[in-house]
Every structure is written in C-alpha cells, then in structure tokens.
Amino acid sequence: MTQPAHEHDAKTPAAPQASSPPPAPDTAAAFLADRLPLMTRYVDALCDTGVSHGLMGPREVPRMWERHVLNCAVVHPGIARGAHVADIGAGAGLPGLVLAIARPDLTMTLVEPLLRRTTWLADVVEELDLPNVEVVRARADELWGQRTFDVVTSRAVARIGELARWSLPLVSRGGEMFVLKGSSAAEERDEDEAVLRRLRVRTAEVETWGEGTVEPPTVTVRLTVDGVAPQLTRKQAGTIDKTKQKPSRRPDRRA
C-alpha cells in the first residue's frame, strides 16, 4: 500500500447532497463536557460540507457521532498533557481534529497530501477558531528530518507495518505512535512484526478505549521505539511497492 500522491484537479461527479446532522448522544455530553458545543459544530461541518466535498460518505451521516467522532474522542486520555501531536493522513480530521477539540492543551498538526482535504480542514480550523491546530499539505515522508512530534496518530490509513514506516521517523526520542485500529489490531501487529523490528520498535501494545461510551470500543496500537526509528525505504522495510508492479491487463473500471 502506498501513500497517495498530491492531488491534481480533475473532473468529478456531482457532489452528494449533505444531510441534517444527528443529535449528540447522551454519552457524548457526559464524555466531552464543556467541549461538546464545539464538537457539535465540527459534526455539523462533517455532515454538511464534509459530505458535499466528498470527505465523508452521505451514508455515514446518521452514525457520525458513534462510528466516527466518539470512536476517536474516547482515546484522548491516552495522550499526555501538553503533547505535540501529528495526525498522519488527516482526511476529514479523524482523529486529529477530534483530539484537538477535546483537548485544547494539545498542539495538533494535521498532515494530509490532498489539496481539497487540506483546504477543507483549514476552513474548519478557522471557522472553529482552533489556535492549537495547523494544517500541513504533505506526505509523512516529506517531513522526515524536518519535524518531530511527541505523538503521531492515524486512523484507517494503512496496515500497521506500512504506517509505522511512514510515521515512526517523525516520532521524537521518547515519543510514541498511537494508531486507531479495528478488532484485528493484534493480528495485524503480529503479521507485521518483521517490519516493526527493522524500525526498532520496542513495544507494540494493543489497548481498548471507551467501554460504556461507544460500541464497539475503540482499539488502538501504541508503538514505542528504542532511540529513534530509521527512515526506511519500502525495499529496506520489506514491504511491497505496488506502484512498481506490472499493470493489470484488465480494463480500467475507475469512474
């Protein structure tokens, strides 16, 4: 799996129609307390321009709180107070914007290579007046040697091994990578053990968050490194570069 290249403008189908946002569940009010009004405005944006700009599917609107926002919000106790955090492949701000809203003590950098996404993110950050958030249009590996962070997060971006190859070189000494994953997190971690070993991973702990607040609970993998992770190429990491594989002879069925 490869990271997406920078986006080029292209003709796209008509934008899907946005739907009315669902009300915040009682569990959101209990968990977010005084941050709930700001998070509600973010959910409104996800259900409106987030859908019309193609960042979220219209079918996700009814479950925006439980499946997406609370799924991300419940992990914030796992991040140290005052941490500098980078969210890799930030997309629509899940989990980066959610964490920045829930935790104003965090300094959040949203790293995303696609122009339409960074434009949307910057607009939402300005609209919500979030001084603790910056938006950076880049691939993770473009920041190697330039930026480091206490914590690097991501959600639904890639397999753990490939994501670790992109992200761990951005983790400062003593920091960690904190990945939101599904129920197969432990299996995926074990399957990618060889890559993690080459990246000097010391611990890879699977953790569960949000029981009683979100169903199913959120599963994360927390990686720490001995010293600083090396900047590995795909060949060095032993991963497959799909861009160099022979093209399929099947017709291109993309829209």
Score class of each variant (00 low, 15 high):
residue 171 V to C: 02
residue 168 L to R: 07
residue 252 D to M: 06
residue 237 A to P: 03
residue 242 K to I: 15
residue 107 T to W: 03
residue 88 I to H: 04
residue 218 T to K: 08
residue 191 E to G: 05
residue 15 A to G: 00
residue 91 G to W: 04
residue 196 L to P: 05
residue 214 V to P: 01
residue 191 E to P: 04
residue 133 V to T: 08
residue 144 W to M: 14
residue 100 A to M: 08
residue 61 V to M: 14
residue 155 R to G: 00
residue 16 P to R: 08
residue 1 M to K: 14
residue 27 T to D: 01
residue 205 E to A: 14
residue 224 T to R: 01
residue 87 D to F: 05
residue 90 A to C: 06
residue 100 A to R: 06
residue 26 D to N: 05
residue 155 R to N: 01
residue 212 G to L: 04
residue 118 T to E: 01
residue 121 L to H: 11
residue 217 P to L: 05
residue 112 E to G: 12
residue 137 R to W: 02
residue 107 T to N: 06
residue 151 V to C: 01
residue 26 D to V: 04
residue 231 Q to F: 10
residue 28 A to G: 03
residue 248 S to K: 13
residue 116 R to M: 12
residue 43 V to C: 08
residue 78 G to K: 06
residue 220 T to R: 03
residue 111 V to S: 00
residue 239 T to S: 06
residue 54 G to A: 14
residue 251 P to M: 01
residue 20 S to Q: 15
residue 16 P to L: 10
residue 25 P to V: 07
residue 117 R to D: 07
residue 213 T to W: 00
residue 222 R to L: 00
residue 236 Q to E: 15
residue 76 H to W: 11
residue 116 R to F: 11
residue 115 L to Y: 09
residue 135 V to W: 02
residue 166 W to N: 02
residue 227 G to F: 10
residue 179 V to W: 04
residue 100 A to G: 11
residue 91 G to L: 04
residue 171 V to R: 00
residue 13 P to N: 08
residue 200 R to K: 15
residue 239 T to E: 06
residue 58 P to R: 11
residue 152 V to C: 04
residue 248 S to T: 14
residue 123 D to H: 13
residue 187 E to H: 02
residue 245 Q to C: 14
residue 21 P to N: 12
residue 189 R to Y: 07
residue 146 Q to H: 13
residue 70 L to W: 07
residue 11 K to I: 14
residue 42 Y to F: 10
residue 92 A to L: 05
residue 130 L to Q: 10
residue 246 K to Q: 14
residue 189 R to V: 05
residue 6 H to A: 12
residue 212 G to H: 06
residue 51 V to T: 10
residue 128 L to H: 01
residue 48 D to T: 15
residue 6 H to R: 12
residue 60 E to Y: 00
residue 9 D to Q: 13
residue 201 V to N: 00
residue 69 V to N: 02
residue 41 R to M: 12
residue 230 P to G: 08
residue 189 R to M: 06
residue 109 T to D: 06
residue 172 S to A: 14
residue 27 T to N: 04
residue 22 P to Q: 14
residue 35 R to T: 10
residue 38 L to C: 02
residue 20 S to H: 12
residue 129 D to Q: 14
residue 143 L to S: 01
residue 203 T to H: 11
residue 204 A to Y: 01
residue 71 N to R: 07
